[in-house]
Simulated scan of single mutants.
Amino acid sequence: MEIIIISIVAFLTAILTFFSGFGLGTLLTPVFMLFFPIDIAIGLCGIVHFANNLFKFFLVGKHANKEVLLKFGIPAIFAAMIGSWLLLQISDLEPLFSYSLFGKHLDVYPVKFIIAILLIF
């Protein structure tokens, strides 16, 4: 059942963001985080991004504005590499704080806290 839910959400968000041009990670990452650890969820979201971008490239790539592609695409590649490196650096850090809720002990790790803040903004 989880695979069906994840597949449907990934498909619907990919279609929805095809027209807006943004938001795939914002919508899909929290859903993936319900089913996977955060570093895997981000990686899976990256795979969906890649597949979605390939689909868009073959569908409408010949109509793309080359200047916009160079001004935003090239920096985006470098930013993605830096973001991946940072994710690897902070994913093994100790929890920032812990708390108990409904009889459960929960830890807040830096990677989860940073991703939560980024998703809020």
Rank of each mutant, 00 (worst) to 15 (best):
E2M: 11
L27Y: 04
A64Y: 09
I114Y: 03
A14L: 14
L12N: 07
S84E: 14
F57C: 08
H105V: 07
K66G: 05
F113Q: 10
N52L: 05
F32W: 01
K112M: 06
A41F: 00
H63I: 02
K66D: 13
L70A: 12
G46L: 03
I3S: 15
A41R: 05
S100T: 13
I8Y: 13
I115A: 04
S20R: 06
K112N: 09
G103F: 08
F18W: 05
L118Y: 00
L12Q: 05
P30I: 04
M81E: 14
L87Y: 12
T13H: 03
E94K: 14
F36Y: 04
D39I: 15
L16W: 04
L118N: 06
D92K: 15
K71Y: 09
F72T: 08
V68I: 09
L69Q: 10
N52T: 13
I74T: 07
F113R: 13
F58L: 08
K66Q: 14
I6P: 00
G83K: 14
L119M: 10
L34I: 00
I38Y: 01
G61F: 13
I6V: 12
E2I: 03
D107A: 02
L12Y: 10
F55K: 14
A76D: 08
M1S: 14
L54A: 07
V48D: 02
I120R: 15
L59G: 10
N53I: 09
L86A: 12
G25Q: 01
E94W: 07
I4D: 08
V9S: 13
L101R: 03
I82E: 15
P37M: 08
L54D: 04
T26P: 00
G21L: 09
G23Y: 12
I4Y: 07
K66C: 09
G25Y: 01
H49L: 07
D39L: 07
I3T: 15
L24N: 00
K71D: 09
A80I: 05
T17D: 01
S7E: 09
L16P: 07
T26C: 02
G103Y: 10
F11R: 05
E94C: 03
A14Q: 05
Y109E: 11
F22A: 04
V48H: 01
V108Q: 11
F72M: 08
I38V: 01
N53P: 00
G61C: 06
Y99T: 15
G43A: 06
Q89P: 07
S91A: 10
K104Y: 06
G46D: 03
S20F: 12
Q89A: 11
K112D: 08
V48A: 01
I15M: 11
E2Q: 12
L87F: 11
E94I: 15
T26G: 02
